[in-house]
Design a protein around this nucleic acid. Sequence first.
DNA 1: TGTAATGTTTACCAATCGGTCAAATATCCG
DNA 2: CGGATATTTGACCGATTGGTAAACATTACA
Lengths: 217, 217
Amino acid sequence: MAIPRAARTQRRTRIQEEKEEQILEAALDVFSVSGFRGSTIDQIAEVAGMSKPNLLYYFRTKEAMHRALIDRVLFTWLEPLRAFDAEGNPESEVRSYIRRKLEMARDFPRESRLFANEVLQGAPHIEDELKGPLKDLVDEKADVIRAWAKAGKIAKCDPYHLIFSIWSTTQHYADFDVQVRAVLGQDYSGAGRFEDAARFLEQLFIDGLRVKPTPSS
Amino acid sequence: MAIPRAARTQRRTRIQEEKEEQILEAALDVFSVSGFRGSTIDQIAEVAGMSKPNLLYYFRTKEAMHRALIDRVLFTWLEPLRAFDAEGNPESEVRSYIRRKLEMARDFPRESRLFANEVLQGAPHIEDELKGPLKDLVDEKADVIRAWAKAGKIAKCDPYHLIFSIWSTTQHYADFDVQVRAVLGQDYSGAGRFEDAARFLEQLFIDGLRVKPTPSS
DNA sequence: TGTAATGTTTACCAATCGGTCAAATATCCG
DNA sequence: CGGATATTTGACCGATTGGTAAACATTACA
């Protein structure tokens, strides 16, 4: 008889790692498009190329699949913000943060949509992560930005809304890709788009944050 | 016997209008949270406070409900962009466009999420609207912005990405409300948030778009 | 090689899905 | 009032849902 999955205390066989990888890859495909409620195990099974009970041998429930996926993706997703360096030059830090986020939107659009779907639907499965690790990280970086503003290195601004606006503008290209393509025309959706977006956003944020000469009042 | 719904050529009774209104209101509640696939007629029926067959008396299919909802919301949703005036002052036009979009995110978050869900999931039901009316409208306004840049009234920038960034930053407060609240702390989610966001975004876009003194090169 | 543990599949389950139907009820109007 | 029309509902249908049971196949390893 098969050992109940709950009893497995540690990774064992090579085949387990491979199959779980295969499943999560398929789950990312499906969840990122339809969200949790709209996705079915059968869809994931079909994409993964294995039978439904076989999926459920590795992940006991649909929720378990979703959770494993979220956990795995969340860490890497916050990497760019974590790399945000208090000691660096403000302008180049912001610039490279934007570029990194934009690269992730280009290279990992499914991951972006996975989170977007989840948050959009009220974040029923990741509320704790948002209020915990995410908030802590943002709080920390907000302090950095505030210090920069206080030191006169960048214009005074609300650091939280600055971070929100960088998130939203960059992730927009992953989450709303269909709309972006529809508006720009499908021919113009290749490599050029990325560079245009990067150029625009860097200009917007860098110029928008540059310290303004105090108007002589 | 009841007249088949398809045969109804024109609005008739008061009760029809009321019930359809009631249904679409409930459908907005449900679709905006779970997306099309993730929503069920039973959920909508429960929210609407009527039986499932009764819903299906007014809208023959789930798709018909969704479509009616989209059609109704799309027009008003594009209103702010339509109001963008080529004859106006660029700075104040951008400013009031941002504010209007932000007001809509605050006052009609369900409508924003309805579209976000739909686009996120590949826009299977509104592809034509995106490539047609939406693209046309954006093209038109992009020309206006380009003309402003050419006339030296604002900094040179890609008008499409400018519009995208205004969309994304403003709608972010509706679509990712849970995340915003989690990061800011739930206490700080009331009226103050709106004003802070408005102030930040206006500063960002206005300063970012201001014509820069050409660096002496 | 044998055998125990691991991995896979077929058949199936109850619950829920979108949707239908006919009968029951409410409304309108002469 | 009464009959025609419009509205509402309970019972039901086949398909799909998440998930299970157990037989079967494969692998690891002594």
